[in-house]
Design a protein around this nucleic acid. Structure first.
Length: 110
DNA sequence: TACTTGACATATA
DNA sequence: ATATATGCCAAGT
């Protein structure tokens, strides 16, 4: 496959997300050095989410703080929710995460 | 080789 | 405030 180091950067950023916290695609994309390429971030994770790759893709959610439900995904939607709950992330009654608390904030000061 | 789809985000109406 | 429309890059078909 093409040496899409692009994916590698996404991988790095996602791997930097501390346990019990989540980051949005836009945030990851920006940190990865690709502002605006949020779509590719999510899709990149999807392709990079190999059963052999221990990528914490589960900590990456959309801007709504919700998990993206995808029938095509490797596991199932509830799997991600369970994994996050196991890390200490609390889900709202609407299945949304409180980004005010669990939103990963890098060394970026307002 | 060309076209379409894709784990979203942001701007505008 | 919500809904609709557009934009970005790469991989898949």
């Amino acid at each position: 496959m093409a040496p899409s180091e692009y994916y590698q950067h996404i991988f790095e950023v996602v791997s930097q997300i501390p346990t019990g916290k989540v980051a949005t695609y836009g945030q990851v994309a920006r940190l990865a050095g690709y502002p605006g390429h949020a779509r590719q971030v999510g899709y990149a994770l999807f392709r990079l989410a190999d059963p052999a790759s221990t990528v914490p893709w589960q900590r990456v959610v959309n801007a709504k703080g919700q998990i993206s439900y995808s029938p095509r995904r490797y596991g199932s939607d509830e799997l991600q929710r369970v994994l996050l709950e196991a890390e200490g992330v609390i889900f709202d009654t609407q299945g949304a995460i409180d980004l005010q608390r669990f939103g990963w904030q890098p060394d970026k000061i307002s």
